[in-house]
Design a protein around this nucleic acid. Structure first.
Length: 601
DNA sequence: CGCACAACTTAGAACGTGCCAG
DNA sequence: CTGGCACGTTCTAAGTTGTGCG
């Protein structure tokens, strides 16, 4: 069984088991929510129809530094002979040389795409000579950049300080804008530097040359009366416009997928914060109608209309398993990944009986970022029957829901509730799960450390639901071993302390007196301290093991209504800083402002 | 309706840094 | 005082949803 699948089962156990240990009172007799601090200026909607700002002023993007040619002593070799390359060809060669010890460069697709794009940058003469990648030797280039990085790391303290200050200056100059009179931080104020495209998973375009962004590619968006940003010397903007129905400050078209890249605000900004708040308010509205929607799709499982049936089963998956909508993707443009609506027959297996359950569906597919989703889950009988029907007479490569698109699904959802789309279910289920899990796992009498462990467990249940995975850190095994060694040592200390305590007890019994009494007390305290330390270490180990391949950050940042966490902190006396770091507190400023301890999602 | 394009959110990996144990 | 590691930050790819057009 896959490790992640195991975790999913454990998570279910937490969901089912532990809640019975706690009184299950939901205590929702009082007012449903407390929202204070309305004077802080958080408003769900301020502008009329799509207007996002009245004033927008900024310095434009900061451009990647120009290419610095290799020093004379560093050579590229072709067929064993050194070869001086033209600047354009050399630059692209360095992109490849830098990546030499990365797995990417061993892949055929990567090599082919790179070589074909590289040749386009060569002069006619170069192209005549350089015909085979396997005759190219980039090792000297590679070594040059490795050495350079090492030298950079070894820089004296004051040099590093200087660099830091320069970066700070840049941040101050280009990293902020003025939006409606407020100075707001920009999320990404630098253009993306040129390089070789690194897609995720089996990407057909990996290795292609991502070209340098020039001012001539960039559209600037700012208010008409603002100071128009200066393009770098000798250059011009592609266009300067003033569109206050969008939130971006600058944009350019990228050459790999031909999509638009944007310069936008940081999550700490008021604009993003209000949008975030709005997102959770929509999810909370879903809470009010979700039971109705669930009865509706259950009814639709029996509809005469096959389209409706498919929609109803897909919606069940989206709701129960927190799957993404799953848009169609153009073949050859991106890795072959799917979501709910784009599931194919080959991704589903039906088991009339498995793991001691009836009607088990086994899902196995690559989702966003080519992360594998694997799950075996018992479903209600009509779902099972419908899936059998949808799969009948189809090839493995055929669409499971051949009459369903994300557009038609979302249109249906929109009819059920204003603002409802497929992804709202993910937000809703994630937040509701956190709230339930916190309720089930938190014990008021626990230490702050234990409460934080409970919080992480609740967070983890959500991450598992949403399939947020990470590759096990390279150093995991080693650092786990270190921790185990520490635990073993601590256990020995505890054992020893117990022996000593026993001895002290008997000493005190035979001798009596103050001296032996104080010695006894000392030993007792020592044992207590050691036992505490041991307990802390073992919770640490548990936490670490359970977190091995689970990424908590994504759900924390994008799916969990921060007001749930803030209310929990207030209720149980946990400092918010233990849950949210500085950046996160800035992003969730809106929630810190308004969530009282009795907030309920 | 179906498509292409635009705008915005969500995502994991790579990178940087500062702290703590040895 | 130093090296490893945990954590925070940066980067940009990969999704979803909305829009406008024929």
């Amino acid at each position: 069984m896959l490790a992640f699948q195991l975790l999913r089962l454990q998570a279910v156990r937490v969901l089912l088991g532990d809640s019975s240990c706690r009184p299950a009172s939901r205590g929702s007799l009082g007012p449903r929510s407390t929202q204070k601090g309305s004077g802080a200026g958080w408003e769900e909607e301020k502008h009329k129809d799509g207007v996002k700002w009245r004033q927008l002023e900024h310095r434009g993007p900061y451009f990647a530094p120009p290419y610095e040619p290799l020093p004379d002593g560093v050579h590229f070799f072709y067929d064993g002979k050194p070869m001086k390359l033209s600047m354009a060809a050399e630059e692209v060669a360095t992109f490849y040389g830098k990546m030499l010890d990365h797995e990417y460069t061993t892949k055929e697709v990567f090599q082919n795409n790179f070589f074909s794009d590289w040749r386009k940058e060569m002069t006619v003469e170069e192209r005549k000579v350089i015909k085979h990648l396997d005759k190219c030797d980039f090792t000297e280039i590679h070594r040059y950049f490795v050495d350079k990085a090492t030298a950079q790391k070894a820089l004296p303290r004051e040099e590093k300080q200087k660099l830091k200050e320069e970066a700070e200056k840049l941040q101050q100059e280009f990293g902020y804008c003025i939006l409606d009179g407020h100075r707001e931080k920009i999320g990404n104020f630098k253009t993306e530097p040129p390089g070789l495209f690194r897609g995720r998973g089996d990407h057909p375009k990996m290795g292609m040359l991502k070209r340098r962004v020039m001012p001539e590619d960039v559209i600037i968006n700012c208010s008409r009366d603002s100071k128009i940003p200066e393009p770098p010397g000798g250059h011009q903007w592609k266009e300067v416009r003033s569109d206050n129905t969008v939130t971006w400050l600058a944009a350019w078209t990228e050459n790999i997928q031909n999509s638009i890249k944007y310069i936008m605000l940081n999550p700490s900004s008021k604009l993003k914060g209000e949008k975030d708040w709005q997102k959770y308010e929509i999810a909370r509205r879903l809470k009010g109608v979700v039971n109705e929607i669930r009865s509706l799709y259950r009814a639709d499982w029996k509809s005469q209309d096959m389209k409706k049936r498919q929609r109803a089963v897909a919606l069940y998956f989206i709701d129960k398993l927190a799957l993404r909508a799953g848009n169609e993707k153009e073949e050859g443009e991106a890795a072959d990944t799917v979501g709910c609506c784009s599931l194919r027959v080959e991704h589903v297996q039906l088991h009339l009986e498995a793991d001691g359950h009836q009607h088990v569906v086994e899902l196995d597919f690559l989702g966003k970022d080519s992360i594998r989703y694997y799950n075996r889950v018992p479903v209600e009988k009509p779902v099972y029957k419908n899936l059998q029907l949808f799969m009948k007479n189809k090839d493995p490569g055929d669409d499971l829901f051949d009459r369903l698109t994300t557009t038609s699904l979302n249109r249906h959802l929109q009819d059920l509730m204003d603002g409802l789309t497929a992804k709202v279910f993910r937000t809703y289920n994630a937040s509701v799960t956190l709230q339930e899990q916190l309720q089930a796992l938190t014990h008021a009498e626990d230490s702050v450390a234990a409460k934080i462990l409970s919080y992480n467990r609740a967070n983890r249940a959500v991450a598992i639901l949403c399939n947020h995975q990470r590759t096990t850190p390279k150093t995991f095994e080693k650092s786990m071993q270190n921790l185990q060694t520490k635990i073993k040592a601590k256990k020995e200390q505890v054992a020893e302390a117990k022996v000593e305590l026993k001895r002290a007890k008997s000493d005190h019994k035979t001798q009596g007196g103050n001296k032996s009494r104080s010695s006894l007390e000392k030993k007792r305290r020592l044992l207590e301290k050691l036992q505490e330390q041991l307990a802390r270490l073992s919770t640490q180990a548990t936490d670490k093991e359970e977190n091995k391949q689970v990424a908590l950050g994504t759900s924390k940042l994008n799916y969990l209504d921060p007001r749930i966490s803030i209310a929990w902190c207030k209720r149980f006396g946990v400092p918010v800083e233990k849950i949210y770091n500085k950046t996160q507190r800035e992003k969730f400023a809106w929630a810190l402002d308004m969530a009282g301890e009795d907030f309920e999602f």
